[in-house]
Write a protein that binds this DNA or RNA. Structure first.
Lengths: 129, 129
DNA sequence: TATGAGGGTTCCTGTCAGTGGAAGGTCAAG
DNA sequence: CTTGACCTTCCACTGACAGGAACCCTCATA
């Protein structure tokens, strides 16, 4: 398979696939003309990466997850720990964003949104005043 | 005031303050020795920026908000619209993260986390199979 | 007077995970 | 033979700073 084929089959942009090769996540062979030549296992790895990234794992996490996946003698505890740590980060980020949403929501609600200059949003940003 | 003073009084790192000057958000004067020389208004602007950034507004949003703040003839509708658009982005991000959290939470829950290799997390990432 | 500590300055590089684009090689169809 | 779709590499850019090098300024102390 050429890169265009794996791109459409994996759902990842060709640029991203080249990047993943660049950083050593995949190692496709090369055809005589220099084109990347992907096997089914490469496609499978890319799909794995795509799903892991969609769950918000960092590239380094993905590297670790792939290594665990390929290690038949892994302990599921290692996978679980990585996932739990990631989960905790996600939850922290959600909490941060919810706090922003709550504050901002209140401010927006209190703003007339008309042609006059008085605005509780700016008032708050300027230090309540 | 020197940069260290405004840093501690605004809560922003000196590096960030220099960066904000670099991109034109603030324009402190200079003393004879070349040091930045901050007035109270600069401090006030930095505090404004700090609060806007804490609410997740982008730097460009902050630029716009500062301009609106300084424009006595602004319409609060413009502020409100900016804030509402930002709010919508925050809510979208929260929804994304919640979807991740839900999926990942399920997977983590189903993982034994012991010394054996069987792992629903890896199974899911590899395409359910 | 020398020295050291603790400010300040600029400039360059790195972060993260790609994206955009230029310049050029390769291949199948018309 | 040419067109157009594909592929290649390489370089620059993103946002919002952080880290660090190399150097300057000021003050207190030995």
């Amino acid at each position: 398979m050429n890169i265009g084929d794996v791109a459409s089959r994996s759902g990842l942009p060709a640029k991203t696939i080249r990047y993943y090769e660049d950083i050593g996540l995949i190692k496709p062979h090369r055809s005589a003309n220099g084109y990347r030549c992907f096997a089914e296992t490469d496609l499978h790895k890319l799909a794995f990466l795509g799903r892991a990234r969609a769950l918000g794992f960092t590239i380094e996490d993905c590297r670790t997850l792939m290594a665990l996946y390929e290690d038949e003698s892994r302990a599921s505890a290692d996978v679980k720990q990585l996932a739990q740590e990631h989960l905790a980060k996600i939850e922290a980020k959600i909490a941060d964003l919810q706090a922003m949403r709550d504050t901002l929501g209140e401010l927006v609600k209190g703003c007339a949104g008309d042609s006059r200059p008085d605005c509780p949003i700016l008032k708050d940003l300027s230090g309540k005043g």
